[in-house]
Every structure is written in structure tokens, then in C-alpha cells.
Design a protein around this nucleic acid. Structure first.
Lengths: 197, 197
DNA sequence: GTGGCCACCTACCAAATGGTAGACAAAATC
DNA sequence: GATTTTGTCTACCATTTGGTAGGTGGCCAC
């Protein structure tokens, strides 16, 4: 844990942007939480937007790393999809703020979304061409790879971040529930995508 | 188009809450868009929160109606799932603000989310027990009905409202694309859920 | 020890925000 | 015709917001 002030600011901002949302997060609130003054935040990050930018940059890098680690020695074919899904659920339990931020940034749109994509785009491309290859090899059902990716993204990110909907369905968002959700998603994706052969 | 002032306010607020988000929507902005004064809004709705409440109430009712209409004479079993998905995509093309609001309200959490759920809960219960019945009848693969519902919700709402992610994947959110997305979702759900028999 | 820089602070500020008080004209009620 | 009610407005207000200006103490190089 980096104890540098700027890192502490980034941590607190990440958490607040993810949970409360960017607009509902005031610099004063972040500062108060860290027991520093707002001007210290503005010393490290010239504007609130710049702070968001830095949060996104750092988070996107961490996300990318988590995926890489998850994919290390993950085998081929279907095992790769499973590895990625497992990586996301691992993040959901260890660093839920990261996924909440992804959700928030997707909602904010450009320029925030553009910035995040800049880092994540290589992964997206790899994922897309991987799916494409699996399909042409007949190991996965045919779909538009991009739409399939959106569907997978929505499902997984939803299962992991839609806490309110989860509650509405009468399921409490505990650690145990997360494991069940992971099993469910994997089961769903397997039967949706994998071909018999 | 209802020409009553309070209805016009509700329309504009719905659109802004859905697209910009609740926090980023100011009463002044809504008023300006309608060429009235903020105080007129506060005459019809005592506070901003109350305005959100009314927007939610009206939208939830409209949503519920849309589902009912979609389900009318929709046949049994899998046809029902298809009818619901089609109803959502019809809304996505005719009243996208409604779905954007659902997304925003889910993000805001209680008390807004609670209010929306109050109206939508019967539908949720019906859907849940429908899925349960289909599974015990062996017409659908076994899953936890609630988690399955969350997965379906996430996928469909995501395919319909995640415009930024869609763009990131290189697909423009046109009307034609919406039709393709609907076909894709239906295909995915069918192979994920339907049993062979 | 002193000059300079770094990290953080206090003191402000202008704009925007949700909300209150009350005037006023038109329409409805008697 | 007088009076009340309804809908909208102007005029304010307190608070919060992101951001500026500038000071201060500690530390390091010399």
C-alpha cells in the first residue's frame, strides 16, 4: 500500500467515484475522508476532471494486469473464457471498486470512457479475435463477435455490480453469493457458447 | 403528447435523468429546456427528490404496461421469454429513456430503487416463478431462478443501454444495429436456456 | 545558516444549486 | 362584480461547488 498522499487520494476518489458516482462526489468529501484539505487534492491533481483521468488511468492498468495474470497458463479454447470470467469475479471480491468504476465510466461516456478504452482496447481486440477464431474452428456457436462480447460484458459486469437489482431479487450480496453467481454465469455461458464436439 | 405543464416537466426530467443522470441534472437546466422557470417545477413537485419519485412512478407503470402488452397472447414456455425480450427491445426503440432510467435508478439505490421496485415487483415475482416452473417441467436448464433473472436482466438491459461500450466495440447504435442485437440476444438466450426436447 | 523548493495549509471567490417568500394575472366560484 | 384559487413569475437566500492566491513550515543543498 502506497502511503504517498497522491495515492491515498486516488484510492479514495476511486472508491467514491465507483460507489457514489462522479457527479455526486465532491472534492471536499474526498478530502474530509482523508483528513486533508481540498487544496491538497488540487495540488496533486489540477482539476476534478484530471483526478478522474488519473483514477481511470491507474485503474485501467490494474484491470489489464488482472486479466493478464488471469490468462497466464490458462490453456486454450473454452478454458480461456473461464479464466477471464474467474479473473473478473476475483476482482469483484478483492477490488470491487475497480468494476464499479468501469460501470460508472461507461455511463459517463467520453472523454472519460475514451481514456479508459485507450488502455483496455488491446484486450478488447484480443478477446474479439479470440472469439472469432474459436467460432471458425467450430468450438463455439456462431455469433457476431462484437455483440457477443457486449453480451458477455453486460452479463458479467451486471452479475458483479448490480447490487441493487440483486437485493430486489431477494439475494444478499455476500461473499458466498458471489461464488454462486460465478458458478451460475459460467454455467450459463458454457451452455450458451460451447458446442458439443 | 400530454400538454399539461406537469407532464411536460416529467417528460423532460425523465429524459435528463436517464441520459445525464440524476445528480448531473439541475432543475434550472430542465426548466430552461421547457422555457419555464425553476419555480414552476417546484410548484408542481415540492423537491427535486419528489420529482424523481414521480418520474419513477410514472415510468414504472408504463414499463409494467409494456410488459403486459408484450405478454398478451404470447403463448407458453419459451415463447414467453421471447415475448418479454421483444417487448424490451420495442421499448428500446420507442422509449429508450425508460430503460435508461431503469439503469440510473438501479445505480442510485434506495430510496429511488425501492420506489421503482414497488411497482415492478409483481412482474419480478411472476417471472421468477415462471422460470421455476419451466425448469421443473424440464423445458429449461436448471439454474437458480433469481440469479438467472439477474443474468437475463443484465444482458438485455446492457445490450440496450450500454451505448458507450457498444461504440467501444466499433458498433454504432443505429436502429439496424438494435435489430441485430435483439436477434443476437434471443439466439444466445435460446441456446443457453432451452433444453433439446 | 540561508536560499529555495516541496507539500500542505488558510483565506477567499464566483458560479451554481435546491429551495423560500411573495407578487400578480387569469380563471373559476360565489 | 367581488373574491378566491390556480399557475407562473421575480426576487432572494444559504449552501455547496470547483478553483485561485498566497502564506508557512520543514527539509535539503550549498
Amino acid at each position: 500500500m502506497a502511503t504517498g498522499t497522491s495515492d491515498r487520494i486516488l484510492d479514495a476518489a476511486l472508491a467514491s467515484f465507483g460507489s457514489r458516482g462522479y457527479d455526486a462526489t465532491s472534492l471536499d468529501a474526498v478530502a474530509k475522508q482523508l483528513d486533508i484539505r481540498k487544496q491538497t487534492i488540487l495540488y496533486w491533481f489540477p482539476t476534478k476532471e484530471a483526478l478522474l483521468g488519473s483514477v481511470i488511468e491507474r485503474s485501467a492498468t490494474e484491470l489489464a494486469e488482472a486479466f493478464e495474470v488471469g490468462l497466464e497458463g490458462a490453456g486454450e479454447g473454452w478454458a480461456k473464457v473461464e479464466a477471464v470470467v474467474r479473473a473478473v469475479f476475483r476482482l469483484a471480491s478483492r477490488r470491487p471498486e475497480l468494476l464499479a468504476l468501469v460501470r460508472e465510466v461507461a455511463r459517463l461516456g467520453p472523454p472519460a470512457a475514451t481514456k479508459m478504452l485507450l488502455v483496455l482496447d488491446p484486450l478488447v481486440q484480443r478477446a474479439s479475435s479470440f472469439l472469432e477464431a474459436e467460432m471458425t474452428a467450430g468450438r463455439m456457436r456462431r455469433h457476431d463477435p462484437r455483440l457477443l462480447l457486449l453480451a458477455i460484458y453486460s452479463t458479467v459486469i451486471g452479475m458483479v455490480t448490480e447490487v441493487e437489482v440483486l437485493r430486489a431479487l431477494g439475494e444478499e450480496p455476500t461473499a458466498r453469493s458471489l461464488v454462486r453467481r460465478r458458478a451460475d454465469v459460467l454455467g450459463l455461458l458454457r451452455s450458451a457458447l460451447k458446442t458439443e464436439a
